[in-house]
Design a protein around this nucleic acid. Structure first.
Lengths: 251, 251
DNA sequence: CCGACTTTGTGCATGCGTTCACAAGCGGTA
DNA sequence: TACCGCTTGTGAACGCATGCACAAAGTCGG
């Protein structure tokens, strides 16, 4: 895993010009799916499987086979017609495109319940994301190690982030603190932020923010519950032909 | 459908036929944003603000003003031209569309670090989502209350979910257990699942699954880091006009 | 070496979602 | 009451993503 390291630009396999061109053109949605394919492929590799067809892989990943092939075509042609894909080759290629050949140092801010959970993941699932810094306002927490890393005070955020070359900041603070923490991360040079706080962050446009919003997820589900209840209540006129092929429970 | 439960339709404000039609047509992406608008609006209501224009609201929510208006138009016309929107009216209308006038009982499965964090949220942010059941395989945990709710054994999942009318199941187990837990939730009649396990769940098509995948989020960020590093490395030929206006750090 | 079969890679059409731009509608003012 | 300015609501254009269908390309068996 080799946690932090001296410099870290050219230690990793650099993208060749051809790939560089491609990376620019990959749709956002496809990037998310590539990460899923990667996980499925890693699992297959662990099971000793070394070849896979687009059909098999797509089913395991829960997507359309054509879409999968198109997604893979964005990163180049690495399959063999008539045979399928070499698992190892695909894994290493997706890893390269996603930038996983380089380690991304992660800082978690806000060591509450969620922060604890995140810190204890200890190098995020799928590794390549070592947590190297933890921050909180609470003086009582400072110095105490969580998941092996001692908590720093939030006022030291700039110094620590720069020193440990943090490239991804995770915000797990209460809502009111989120924007302020975000600003501090940004001025510490962090350009990628994963936000768990239910707040819309304002950032300069050179910073990438992704948000994980529990409340929103729940409310989307709630919407579907409501919609279904309504549809069920109005099954009188006749349903449209939109394929509700009724309760196929697959064990 | 409406699985079990005595009545449960008309306890809550029922959607009128006109709204029912509309709810069916709301794009998935818009639903997610409506939840965000709702939060922003609630905040405004708490601050005593009672009118807002699409411009203000859209900025606070971090979206385009035109998009916001279109999103709101999906749920009907509740603004006043020349003035804006009444905050209260909008809040209650979005709540109705999202089905938040009804309480959605939530079950959390897997009381590890993340499960603890979720249970301790204690009725999810924005309320309306009371956590009413917790499950784990670990016998040592069974009976111990977490966040006020005693943990049940996972083998009792069907009985407990039916009894407590669970409508949303949250999976926070280790990956290998996720599919099995999911199957059990489904056979207990749970139709909405929020999945934190890094696994692609296979479900019948009457079940709605949303996934929150830390690893994928991190890898998407990683991709952007890599893409940027590459773009920065190839600033020699000349950048395209696609607005990278260079490192504007706003404090 | 050839032919049949399999599976990839992709051009094209379709549909969805976003954005633009403007007419319609409402409050305030004289 | 009539006008003026402001903001909504939406028709229409655009662009992106998905899905289809097929040609290209490779393997395997004879």
């Amino acid at each position: 895993m080799a946690s932090q390291r001296g410099e870290g630009e050219t230690t990793t396999t650099p993208l060749e010009p051809a790939d560089r061109e491609r990376a620019r053109a990959i749709p956002e949605a496809a990037v998310a799916r590539l990460a899923v394919y990667l996980r499925v492929l890693s699992g297959m590799a662990d099971q000793g499987i070394n070849a896979v067809s687009s059909e098999e892989l797509s089913q395991a990943a829960g997507v359309n086979a054509a879409k999968l092939r198109k997604d893979l075509s964005y990163i180049g042609s690495y399959g063999t017609r008539g045979v399928g894909y070499d698992v190892e080759v695909l894994v290493s290629h997706i890893e390269r495109i996603l930038g996983l050949t380089r380690n991304h140092s992660v800082a978690v801010v806000g060591i509450g319940n969620l922060g604890h959970a995140l810190a204890n993941y200890g190098g995020f699932p799928g590794r390549g994301f070592p947590v190297t810094a933890l921050f909180d306002v609470d003086e009582d927490l400072v110095g105490i190690p969580v998941g092996g890393i001692p908590v720093s005070h939030i006022d030291d955020i700039t110094a620590v982030c720069v020193e440990r070359e943090v490239s991804i900041g995770v915000i797990a603070t209460p809502p009111p603190a989120a924007q302020s923490v975000c600003d501090r991360l940004v001025s510490a040079g962090v350009q990628c932020i994963l936000n768990f706080a239910p707040v819309v962050l304002q950032v300069p446009d050179n910073v990438e923010v992704r948000k994980v919003d529990l409340a929103v997820e729940m409310q989307i589900l709630s919407f579907h519950v409501a919609r279904r209840a309504d549809e069920a209540a109005s099954v009188s006129v006749g349903n449209n032909g939109l394929g509700v092929d009724g309760m196929v429970i697959r064990p």
